[in-house]
Lab assay of single mutants.
Amino acid sequence: NITNLCPFDEVFNATRFASVYAWNRKRISNCVADYSVLYNFAPFFAFKCYGVSPTKLNDLCFTNVYADSFVIRGNEVSQIAPGQTGNIADYNYKLPDDFTGCVIAWNSNKLDSKVGGNYNYLYRLFRKSNLKPFERDISTEIYQAGNKPCNGVAGFNCYFPLRSYGFRPTYGVGHQPYRVVVLSFELLHAPATVCGPKKST
Rank of each mutant, 00 (worst) to 15 (best):
A192Y: 14
F62S: 07
D90W: 04
D137C: 02
G152H: 10
P43Q: 07
K26F: 06
A145H: 13
W106L: 05
C31G: 05
V182W: 01
I80L: 05
P54T: 09
S108I: 04
Y159N: 14
V20E: 04
V153Y: 10
T140S: 12
I142C: 08
E135R: 04
F70H: 01
A14M: 05
Y39D: 15
C31P: 06
N151Y: 10
R136F: 03
N151G: 13
A190M: 11
F156E: 15
F167Q: 04
C102D: 00
N92M: 01
S164R: 10
C195W: 08
D90K: 11
S113A: 14
G86A: 04
K26G: 01
K94L: 00
L183F: 05
R168M: 11
S36N: 14
Y165R: 04
C195H: 11
G101F: 00
C6P: 02
T15P: 13
T55A: 14
L57P: 03
L187Y: 10
Q144C: 06
F45E: 15
L95R: 00
V194P: 12
L60Y: 15
W106V: 05
P82V: 02
G174E: 15
A46G: 09
F8Y: 06
A42S: 08
A192F: 12
P169N: 09
L60K: 11
N1A: 08
G117M: 08
Y159I: 11
C6F: 05
N58P: 13
K128D: 11
D137P: 03
R16N: 14
A190C: 08
N4S: 11
S184Q: 08
Q84D: 03
Y165T: 05
S19Y: 01
P133R: 01
Y171A: 15
K132P: 06
R163L: 08
L188Q: 15
N147L: 11
A42F: 08
V11I: 15
A105Y: 08
N64S: 12
C102W: 00
F134E: 07
T201D: 13
Y21Q: 06
N40F: 05
Y35H: 05
L57R: 03
N64T: 13
A154T: 14
D68V: 01
A42I: 08
N157L: 09
F45I: 10
D90G: 04
I28E: 01
T193K: 13
A105Q: 02
S69E: 02
D90C: 05
Y39E: 15
F156P: 15
K48R: 14
F45V: 14
V52K: 02
N120R: 13
S36G: 09
V65P: 01
S113W: 03
F41P: 06
F47Y: 07
A33G: 07
S53T: 11
L125M: 15
K48W: 03
T170E: 15
S108C: 05
L131P: 02
E135I: 03
V153L: 12
V173T: 14
K148R: 13
N147P: 14
V77F: 05
L187W: 11
E141G: 12
N1K: 09
C31Y: 04
S113H: 04
E76A: 02
A46T: 15
G166F: 07
N13S: 04
G86E: 02
N120C: 07
T170V: 09
F185Y: 08
Y93M: 01
Q84R: 09
R73L: 06
L122R: 15
V182K: 00
Q79F: 01
N118M: 06
F126Q: 15
T55F: 11
F134M: 08
I104K: 00
G83H: 10
N109D: 10
I104Y: 10
S36L: 05
D9I: 13
F44M: 09
K128Q: 12
R136H: 07
V77N: 03
K110W: 06
